[in-house]
């Protein structure tokens, strides 16, 4: 059987995780090509609608990643993001969406290796879970 290739959308903040992704690239850290980045200024900018839209649009998982607590370029955007992700997880898991399909992590600007690992682990996790339901749904 053909290996399942998940589609994953990642909302990452410009100051930390996007920078870490650049660093991972510069250091040629091999990553699964399944994760596609959307550059945001801060995780605090990630409207829950974006996560929903990505999932309904066929993403098998969504990653939100920003600066570590206390390091947010905008002081505390990441704390607001954490509450919103908490809420989304509560809502979505009730509809059978596995918790791992909405992932929030902190990856600092210097953590290129951490970024590559996060990507690869997430892809493996989702590969294990199989395709998200939405990729086959006609109702969005």
């Amino acid at each position: 059987m053909e290996r399942f290739e998940p589609t994953i959308v990642a909302f990452v903040c410009n100051w930390c995780t996007y920078t870490a992704a650049d660093l991972a690239g510069t250091a040629r850290m091999i990553q699964s090509p399944n994760v596609r980045l959307v550059r945001m200024m801060c995780t605090g900018m990630v409207d829950p609608k974006y996560v929903l839209k990505a999932l309904l649009g066929g993403a098998d998982a969504v990653l939100i990643s920003g600066c570590h607590p206390g390091d947010c370029h905008y002081i505390n955007g990441n704390y607001k993001a954490r509450r919103r992700v908490k809420l989304l997880k509560e809502i979505l898991t009730g509809f059978g969406v596995d918790e791992r399909r909405v992932k929030l992590t902190w990856v600092g600007a210097s953590e290129g290796n951490e970024f590559a690992e996060t990507v690869n682990e997430l892809v493996e996790d989702i590969r294990e879970l199989g395709p998200g339901e939405t990729s086959r749904m006609m109702v969005i």
């Binding site: 200024m41 900018m45 409207d47 905008y74």
Partner: peptide
């Protein structure tokens, strides 16, 4: 930073160059 836009339920608050339409 978009903290306001991320919270505003009616989409009244939006960050220029990072609007909902664009995302």
């Amino acid at each position: 930073c978009g903290s306001c836009a991320g919270a505003c339920p009616s989409g009244a608050a939006q960050i220029r160059h990072f609007t909902e339409k664009e995302i």
